[in-house]
Design a protein around this nucleic acid. Structure first.
Lengths: 120, 120
DNA sequence: CCTTGCCTTGACGCCGGTGTCAGGGCCTAC
DNA sequence: GTAGGCCCTGACACCGGCGTCAAGGCAAGG
């Protein structure tokens, strides 16, 4: 499978797949003419990558998940390294949630102050 | 008051104050030698700007708040334009909260799957 | 042969608030 | 006169995932 086909099947672009490769997430072989050649299993990997990116992981965080998948596991997050990244990201998300919640509270307070001033 | 003094009093840097000016948030006068001259009221304005930035507003969003303050209001968010921006930002924050909450749920689910596999 | 359509590498752009460096002017104190 | 500390403008760097353009190779069909 060439890069264009994999990109289309994964719902993304060739540029994006080359970017993943550049960052060590996928390692396609090459045809005699230099074209990247992907086997069907890579589709699964790319889907995993994109799911993790959508959950806010960075490309470097994703490496252990891909390695875990390639090691034959049914999902990429059952390995110790992946689990560590998962826990780190969970803590990070919790931090963001706290910050956003605080912001939300301030915004709401300010909006209520306005309403009070409208009927003094 | 020169830019360095205002920066220090506001807990920021001259570079940052010039950036705010470049984006229309503050309009200092100039000394004969070209130095920016700030009066004491600007300290309040800069504090307002920084509080709004910390709550995730962009510099363009902040303009109505500054205008509101300059119009003599006790706080920058009591004017209709500011209130509109506040509501927009609140909706945005709610959106982010929803997304982050969904991500958090997925992360937790995956971590629990791991625990289950550890004691099969 | 020529077009078309895929592929290749390389490189810049984006976004946004700020740090930081370059190159130069003003002012005060010694 | 000169050293030091403030000020000025202008411009590049950052971060990260990807769009997009450039310039060119390869394959197949007319």
């Amino acid at each position: 499978m060439l890069i264009g086909e994999l990109a289309e099947r994964a719902g993304t672009s060739p540029r994006t797949l080359r970017y993943y490769e550049e960052h060590g997430l996928i390692h396609p072989s090459r045809d005699a003419n230099g074209y990247r050649q992907y086997d069907d299993g890579e589709l699964r990997v790319v889907h995993e990558i994109r799911a993790l990116l959508a959950d806010g992981f960075g490309v470097d965080d994703i490496k252990p998940f891909v390695a875990c998948l390639r090691a034959g596991n049914s999902s990429g997050h059952v390995c110790p390294d992946s689990a560590a990244v998962l826990r780190r990201r969970l803590a990070e998300v919790d931090g963001y949630l706290d910050q956003l919640t605080a912001v939300r509270r301030r915004l709401q307070t300010q909006l209520e102050e306005i309403k009070c001033q409208m009927t003094p």
